[in-house]
Simulated assay, not measured.
Amino acid sequence: MTAIIEQPAKVRRPRASLQLLRITLVLHAVLVIAQPIAAGYFLAGNVDAMTEIHATIGGSVWMIAFLQTVVAACYTTAGRGRIWPTVASAVVLVAEFVQLIFGYAQNFAVHIPLGTAIVTAVVWMTVWSFRSTARTSRREAKR
């Protein structure tokens, strides 16, 4: 009598979509970390740092957040990755757009704490993307 050996079902894991998400997150993290540095240069007396560096990066960083949201959605759908990175990326996208508005309005009571929250969220997501849990599919995460 021969025993039938069942092969475990092959679980599809995010690979290419995770690599794209990592690249996008690293780029996003570099840009948002550069923002408080540029603001610091301005506060140290370099008046051109605000218009040449901080405003330039601020005007484009939300576009990277949009790209990150699209890539995170691909990670979630095509790569069968977790859902929360897409939701978190969309929240960061909205936060960065609001950040841009309050920055140009010079409402620093909102701009500075919101910027701190954005930097924290993006860096945290970037670190998470390189952990082994980012490679697990939604199906594996539920087990």
Rank of each mutant, 00 (worst) to 15 (best):
T2Q: 06
T2F: 04
A3N: 09
I5P: 00
E6C: 03
K10N: 01
V11W: 01
R13K: 05
P14R: 09
R15E: 14
L18G: 04
Q19G: 04
L20N: 07
L21N: 10
I23C: 02
T24K: 01
T24A: 15
L25W: 02
V26K: 05
L27V: 14
L27S: 11
H28K: 07
H28A: 07
V30H: 04
V32A: 01
A34K: 01
P36A: 08
N46M: 06
N46Q: 11
D48R: 12
A49W: 05
E52V: 06
H54R: 08
H54M: 07
H54V: 06
A55C: 02
T56I: 14
I57V: 15
G58S: 03
G59T: 08
S60G: 15
S60K: 05
I64D: 03
A65F: 06
F66P: 00
F66K: 04
L67M: 11
V71H: 01
V71L: 08
A73Q: 04
C74G: 15
C74E: 10
T76V: 02
T76F: 12
T77Q: 06
A78V: 06
R80F: 05
R80G: 10
G81H: 02
R82W: 15
I83P: 00
W84N: 01
W84H: 09
T86H: 06
T86I: 03
A88W: 01
A88P: 00
V91M: 12
V91I: 15
E96D: 13
F97G: 13
Q99L: 08
L100H: 07
F102P: 04
Q106R: 10
Q106G: 00
N107F: 09
H111K: 10
H111S: 09
I112G: 12
G115P: 05
I118Y: 07
V119I: 13
V119N: 09
T120S: 14
V123N: 09
V123W: 12
W124H: 05
M125W: 11
T126I: 08
T126Y: 08
T126A: 14
V127M: 08
R131N: 01
R131A: 05
R131E: 00
R135D: 09
R135Y: 09
R139T: 13
R139K: 10
E140S: 03
